[in-house]
Design a protein around this nucleic acid. Structure first.
Lengths: 221, 221
DNA sequence: AAACTTTTGTGACTTTTCTCACAGACACCC
DNA sequence: GGGTGTCTGTGAGAAAAGTCACAAAAGTTT
């Protein structure tokens, strides 16, 4: 059962739920549960069935693939208003997870039980459209990712990653490597190259992009 | 307008359409168009909008990413009964294609105009479930692919590819390379290694797997 | 401020993959 | 059965990425 503050917040982040018939909305408030999860929580992992459908209110999730040797690669990130499409996939494909979800920033979410989720999909077109667009977006992103991993050099991917982030970047080289699916040493060396070109300035857990256009050009080479 | 033979074929491959109300079925027959495309046809490409929703009756499509230098990588294959989810993605996400679709084997398909597709989605739950499962499946496949490309060595991926295909494999090394996102020379060399291990026998445009278990074990290393 | 942890820098070396170049093998077609 | 085009084999070398080992630097804790 959701309190009214959470209800308001949910409708803010998920406006497509506003048009729901009153009875259905009541049903939603009654069956959904509010949760808070601290950063670092593993909310799902490979080969696990899934329990509910998450609607993010704040914070974010990193969805990653982990390799046997400890390396990992970020598939995508889930932000408020987005929900985790992988969970839809599990629920709708009656399958299990094939990735790991880790809370990146402390998170508040509303979890819908599977029947409620299915009902929403079937009765409410805006919600259905929303879920389809999410699927569509993720599919596109993943295809771009496959292509990047297969055909682009790491330095280009790193450059693209740097300019995609808010400017002074407060991350360790290891964190960047984990996002790219590579290792720390390589990222360090590449960053040093960028620094020598005068494109970035490096500090401990800090990377300042000083020549974004150059990085962009380089990443598109 | 579909002739009755095509109608029957369509319902065979897409049984979830059988439960449609009669009026809706009439609408479907009236608006759908039958098409035949020879192998090699590019049915869609990057940055193109899409016209209709394809339901495959026979043949197959390779969905690929092409790199600037001529290399390519197969994202997935579409077979009869499957439909191309990328097109759904385009239609539902109101976006453009981000990959290329090439007819692999001569193909017969029924194309639904976007409005018909949307109506089906909204009124017929089995069809909707079907589309969702397809999305779900593709998403999972793509995630596995990303992971394979990022973390597995080419020899392992090649081994996995060989055992996934019907046994005497009639393909050129170039075709295998294109499926893996690599180049011909490497595939040739790796195949030679496999042959020296006694795992395969090589011929012109022919690879016979003689020790599938060994290949499987190797691919899972 | 000494001890510890985390992060970063870096050299040396290996492995994997790609590139280029060219030769031989096979198939097909007049 | 000679010509032509498509496949395949292979060597030499380069480039990219990863591994290992260790040291220096920057923070944190006590």
């Amino acid at each position: 059962m959701l309190d009214s503050a959470t209800q308001t917040l949910l409708l803010q982040h998920y406006p497509m739920l506003r048009g729901l018939p009153a009875t259905q909305l009541e049903d939603l408030w009654a069956n959904a549960t509010d949760m808070r999860l601290p950063a670092g929580t593993v909310i799902f992992d490979e080969n696990q069935p899934c329990q509910g459908f998450p609607l993010l209110l704040s914070g974010s999730i990193r969805v990653i693939k982990a390799a046997a040797n400890g390396r990992e690669l970020q598939l995508y990130r889930v932000s408020p208003g987005e929900s985790c499409i992988l969970t839809s996939s599990c629920l709708l494909g009656h399958a299990q997870y094939h990735a790991r979800g880790v809370v990146e920033q402390d998170m508040e979410l509303v979890a819908l039980p599977p029947p409620t989720f299915r009902t929403l999909l079937s009765i409410h077109e805006p919600f259905r459209d929303y879920i389809f667009s999410l699927f569509s977006e993720r599919l596109t992103e993943l295809m771009q990712l496959v292509s990047a991993v297969a055909f682009q050099k790491l330095d280009q991917r790193l450059a693209a990653l740097l300019i995609a982030k808010p400017n002074p970047i407060y991350l360790t080289h290891q964190a960047l490597a984990d996002e790219l699916g590579s290792v720390r040493e390589i990222v360090s060396r590449l960053l040093k190259n960028f620094a020598e070109q005068g494109w970035v300035r490096l500090g401990r857990e800090q990377i300042e992009v000083v020549n974004a256009p150059a990085l962009k050009k380089f990443s598109e080479l």
